[in-house]
Nucleic acid binder design. Structure first.
Length: 556
RNA sequence: GCCCUCGUAGCUCAGUGGAUAGAGCAAAGGCCUUCUAAUCCUUUGGUCGUAGGUUCGAUUCCUACCGAGGGCGCCA
């Protein structure tokens, strides 16, 4: 009996009561949702599970919540595995299930193994998830690192719901930003200081040196313009290779690296503009070509082709969106930093102008900034001074697992403070180790069990009657719902928070219940049965860590 | 001025209408001749920014205000 089972039972009961006329929806009330919320009550004395379904739906049937609860509870009490049903307060229905029916879950999880926690909410959906997308002017900084961790984890969560996900990285290697990068390389190669608006830092020196070493011609003897172009071309390649390598080492591999320029070279930008013209959403003014985004809720119209004939940034976005759609993606999700929140309206307007559905075909997730601290003091970062803390710096300081976990365990709506000093000094206090240790413990317990002859040769769930076993089973039952919610709300941090709860519940169980008998003791049914529960906890911890891209070590 | 996000324990953060608001860290104390003590247990710690409103019920939804960060280009 899991909460999902109980929820389904309640839905069935309501349908049956409607069928035999004991319940009737009031006029004007639509149909009821397919599932009802069954949760662990905060106070365990209230029961194993509780639902507020009576308070929510009684009105729709023209009843008061208590009476509705009475009607439901009579039927619920007949459900197999339900031991007792209480009604409390304004109409809470509190359910008590037998240890045997609750314990069945342990075996089910072990047998489902990697499939436990997966769902079908997004079965058959083709999703495009674009994240990081930093231009190759330097290494990935903390902001990009956060999106790499969160984005990849979100992709994994979507995949766990059956979606076919393409991880995509959009970049540009031309333009003002890149010019600054190229000028900085050139200046450094000549031994000059970084340009006023350029980039500093050791990586500029490294790239400049490598460009000089790996290029046959003597770049520095070329005319200024040609030299800069040589540094741009070679420097971008080297920088981008480094970025890809950093991401790969971070456990994030993109399916598509999309080059903005390809949209211009293929004529896709012109096609997108033509399409919008045909739809009547373009107009000319002051020598420029505009998209009338105000028709679709933007607060001002947007220039697509500037009066000097050059394309504005949004021109690429128009074509890029159409390209994604033409590749068969029903949903295109963009993860952007808070400094891009002003894009949302124009992007949604663009989506609507093409006749698509904003917030469905196009979805934008805005993530807040990462603040770096050192001993509680903000670290001032400057691209020019080269004091930017990068993905590699973070990984070097705390390792991939701790870095990904620290970045993925908080809501993207919140600014995140990362204190390098603290993470370096107190790695043992990092929550990721708490979770990983719990997983390692399940493995070592299983190993010890095997060596002492405790095997999963029998399973008697009625023996899982200790309070900590009830708690552990209840917690393990939540994984499918947590993953589904993480997917629905685009919030992978829910998985991390859940794992911390699982780890705590597991540790408490471990403290109270032994899988192997004390020395000299006989191996009994309860030991063999508990091994199933131990292994089930291991499966849940491993599956959850997988969703975060964090390793599940066998021992620590 | 307008727009977005945030404001919850000393710190970092969970909690998108339910019962007595949680975790980790920090502080104080307690358990290893028994499967991993990176675990566990106890204690201390709160005007959920402020003020209204919506309702059976609000940390959660609405409004205003205060505070923090970000954004309001024919830049990319």
């Amino acid at each position: 009996m899991t909460p999902a089972d109980l929820s389904a039972a309640i839905v069935r009961i309501i349908a049956a009561l409607q069928a035999d006329g004991r319940l009737a929806l009031k006029d004007g009330e639509g149909q009821l949702p397919a599932e009802v919320v069954v949760e662990r009550p905060k106070n365990r004395e209230h029961g194993d599970w509780a639902t507020n379904v009576a308070m929510q739906f009684a009105g729709k049937f023209g009843m008061n919540p208590r009476a509705f609860a009475e009607l439901l509870s009579g039927e619920l009490a007949k459900v197999d595995g339900v031991e007792k049903v209480d009604i409390a307060g304004p109409g809470f229905i509190n359910l008590f299930v037998s240890a045997a029916s609750a314990g069945e879950l342990a075996k089910a999880i072990v047998e489902a193994d990697a499939a436990y926690g997966r769902g079908t909410d997004l079965a058959g959906v083709k999703l495009n998830l674009e994240f990081v997308s930093a231009n190759p002017t330097g290494p990935i900084h903390m902001g990009g690192t956060r999106w790499a961790a969160v984005g990849d984890s979100l992709a994994r969560v979507f995949e766990a719901q059956g979606a076919q996900v393409t991880r995509e990285y959009y970049f540009n290697d031309h333009g003002a930003q890149i010019d600054r990068f190229a000028r900085s390389l050139l200046a450094r190669a000549k031994g000059e200081p970084a340009p006023e608006d350029g980039y500093g830092g050791a990586y500029i020196q490294e790239i400049a040196d490598r460009v000089l070493a790996e290029t046959a011609t003597d770049i520095l003897s070329l005319p200024e313009v040609e030299a800069q172009e040589a540094f741009r071309a070679a420097g971008v390649d080297l920088m981008f290779a480094e970025i890809r390598e950093s991401l790969h080492d971070f456990g994030v591999d993109f399916d598509v690296f999309f080059h903005e320029n390809s949209l211009y070279e293929s004529g896709a930008v012109q096609k997108a503009i033509d399409k919008l013209k045909a739809l009547g959403h373009m107009f000319e003014k002051d020598g420029a070509l505009w998209l009338r985004t105000t028709t679709f809720g933007d607060d001002r119209d947007r220039v697509v082709i500037k009066s000097d004939g050059e394309a504005a940034y949004i021109a690429g976005d128009l074509a890029y969106y159409l390209d994604k759609r033409s590749r068969g993606f029903d949903q295109c999700i963009y993860m952007l930093g808070a400094d891009h929140h002003g894009y949302i309206q124009r992007m949604m307007a663009m989506c609507a102008a093409f006749g698509d559905k904003p917030n469905h075909n196009l979805e934008i997730l805005i993530g807040q900034m990462v603040n770096l601290l050192r001993d509680g003091e903000p670290v001032r970062m400057s691209k020019r001074a080269g004091t930017v803390v990068t993905m590699e710096d973070l990984v070097e300081a705390v390792g991939v697992d701790a870095a990904r976990y620290a970045l993925a365990r908080s809501s993207i709506n919140s600014q995140l403070d990362i204190d390098l000093e603290q993470l370096q000094k107190k790695t043992n206090d990092n929550p990721v180790f708490y979770v990983q240790y719990a997983h390692a413990r399940t493995k070592q317990v299983a190993k010890n069990a095997a060596s002492l002859g405790v095997e999963r040769t029998e399973f008697d769930p009625s023996l899982l009657e200790h309070a900590t076993e009830s708690e552990l089973l209840a917690k393990l039952s939540e994984l499918p719902r947590v993953v589904a919610q993480a997917s629905e709300f685009r919030e992978p941090h829910r998985v991390a928070r859940y794992l911390e709860e699982v780890a705590g519940t597991y540790h408490r169980w471990y403290d109270a219940c032994r899988v192997t008998p004390l020395s000299g003791g006989q191996v009994e049914s309860v030991h063999r049965t508990r091994l199933w529960l131990n292994d089930a906890a291991g499966v849940v911890l491993r599956n959850g860590l997988d969703l975060l891209g964090v390793s599940a070590p066998e021992r620590m």
